[in-house]
């Protein structure tokens, strides 16, 4: 700026405007107060007693101590129900994902342009997603009787809801270009879905299905609680008989299986996407 050789006193620049003080965030204060209030209120309402938790801590350490000595001889009894659990998860996932696949296209607005159709089927999907799995399992135990079939139906419905939702969202984010190209080549709506949409989303579908399978293996261990078959039945029995040595063994076995399945599945999904 200054081209002159001899130094001139610089004109004092006008004072820069001061950083204004941050306005007081009333909303934030209100939300904080509300949340703390809510926490206290729900504690009072559900009669939380911290003292009781501390008082019973001895019992907790006792259970923990028993669990530290797993009954290894029980492994042979666990294998069969564990396999049943995995079978339930496989079949339930397959059925649920199989139905979710065509259904997702039906609710995708870039495939089906009729807003009434997409709206109606989305509504049904959302309703199904709101039902908790344990409730479903209890319901199907009542309908089809105690056993793995109730568990399979439950897992199928859960998988349908989850994969259906994730997958249709993937379908809606595809590149629309190939759709236009196929339409220009004289393809009808079926052919457009087959050649412009499916190849773009197949990886997502397999990935979400594997993800649902991971969750299902974990969920199916619990479903036995309400009589829906699998290892959960044994878990419940042993807990009822205070056989913590067996419980801990089952927890370990389930842990190992879930770990292996999660690892294999997540590696596969990484490769797909």
């Amino acid at each position: 700026m200054e081209m002159s050789e001899h130094t001139q006193p610089r004109p004092t620049p006008p004072a820069a405007p001061q950083l204004p003080k941050k306005p007081f965030a009333w909303e934030r204060l209100a939300v904080t107060v509300l949340m703390i209030g809510g926490l206290v209120w729900s504690g009072v309402e559900t009669q939380v007693n911290v003292g009781q938790f501390v008082a019973n801590f001895g019992q907790f350490t006792q259970i923990l101590a028993e669990m530290c000595r797993p009954d290894w001889s029980y492994v042979s009894y666990v294998v069969a129900p564990l396999i049943e659990t995995i079978k339930m998860a496989v079949i339930g996932t397959a059925i649920g994902a199989g139905i979710a696949f065509p259904y997702a296209f039906l609710v995708s607005r870039n495939v089906v342009t009729n807003r009434f159709v997409t709206g109606l089927f989305r509504f049904i999907l959302n309703i199904i997603r709101t039902i908790p799995d344990l409730l479903l399992a209890a319901l199907f135990v009542a309908v089809v009787g105690i056993g793995p079939v109730a568990g399979i139906i439950t897992l199928a419905i859960f998988t349908f809801g989850m994969v259906g939702k994730l997958f249709f969202e993937a379908v809606e984010t595809i590149d629309e270009g190939p759709i236009e190209a196929l339409r220009a080549a004289g393809a009808n709506q079926w052919e457009i879905v087959r050649y412009a949409v499916v190849p773009q989303v197949m990886g997502f579908f397999v990935s979400y299905t594997l993800y649902a399978f991971e969750i299902n293996v974990r969920a199916s261990t619990v479903l036995g609680y309400v009589g829906a078959g699998g290892i959960g039945v044994f878990l419940q029995q042993n807990l009822g008989q205070f056989r913590y040595d067996r419980v801990s063994l089952m927890v370990l076995v389930i842990f190992a299986v879930v770990l292996v399945i999660d690892y294999v599945s997540s590696k596969t999904r990484e490769a797909l996407l």
Binding site: D175, G177, P178, E180, A181, A184, A185, Y195, A196, P199, Q200, M202, G203
Partner: peptide, 13 residues
């Protein structure tokens, strides 16, 4: 009638 687009419109995968 064949058509060619600015963004190619291929299925990339």
């Amino acid at each position: 009638i064949g058509m060619i687009f600015q963004n190619f419109n291929l299925v990339k995968r």
